[in-house]
């Protein structure tokens, strides 16, 4: 564990908490893409499937973190699609998730480190996570704006994988550890946030709201 990965995971936890708080406090999921949250839930379940297969006692933080990620993302989906369904902006959350899931699944079968079920599920989860934020970014471009709290969520969500890139550089240099698939997907994922990062840093930090087109 290194400082980059630690802050990366904390940033990821913060993102999940910010979104949950936003929906719970405002009792509304306006401006939130339910599809992105569904895709994230699928990512966690397929990536941490080993939790369900051979359940090992929750003896370390990693197991606890995995369970937190899975339960929090499923609970967020429950809030969006059931509890606060009336506030779900289905018309603007219109990006076809199948266009993300099918290519990720296909690519996972073609490019992977080992052709076995768990490894392919893990690879699928990595590829899917790289593009899972697209419906959310698409929704913001359709509505033309993002609530400040949603911008903070996106900033934390984007920062988590950006910090993981620093973690991979660190691990390459000090542990000569390389996981090419995770690195390539993580770089793609972070690049997708660049436009948002620019808007966040030039606007939200100064107290303005993000309104598109910028």
């Amino acid at each position: 564990m290194n400082i980059f990965r630690l802050f990366g995971d904390l940033s990821h936890l913060a993102a999940i908490a910010i979104l949950l708080l936003k929906i719970w406090k405002t009792r509304s999921c306006a401006g939130v893409s339910g599809k992105t949250q569904l895709l994230f839930a699928v990512c966690f379940i397929t990536r941490y499937i080993d939790l369900f297969l051979h359940f090992v006692s929750l003896y370390n933080t990693e197991k606890v973190m995995k369970l937190i990620y899975i339960s929090a993302s499923v609970f967020t989906c429950y809030l969006i699609f059931f509890k606060f369904k009336a506030t779900y902006d289905g018309n603007h959350d219109s990006m076809r998730a199948e266009f993300l899931i099918v290519p990720a699944a296909g690519l996972a079968c073609l490019i992977n480190t080992k052709f076995d079920a768990i490894e392919i599920l893990w690879t699928f989860s990595i590829y899917l996570e790289a593009v899972a934020i697209l419906p959310q970014l698409f929704l913001i471009s359709k509505t033309g704006e993002a609530e400040t709290i949603t911008s903070h969520y996106l900033f934390a969500q984007g920062s988590y994988r950006a910090l993981y890139i620093l973690n991979w550089i660190y691990r390459y240099h000090y542990e000569s550890h390389v996981d090419t698939i995770a690195i390539v997907a993580g770089v793609v994922q972070t690049i997708l946030y660049c436009d948002f990062f620019y808007l966040y840093i030039t606007k939200v930090v100064k107290g303005q709201k993000i309104v598109l087109p910028a």
Binding site: T113, K114, E119, N167
Partner: peptide
């Protein structure tokens, strides 16, 4: 079980 290259990150 064979020691598959474990993914040790979240």
């Amino acid at each position: 079980q064979h020691a598959s290259k474990k993914h040790d990150e979240l």
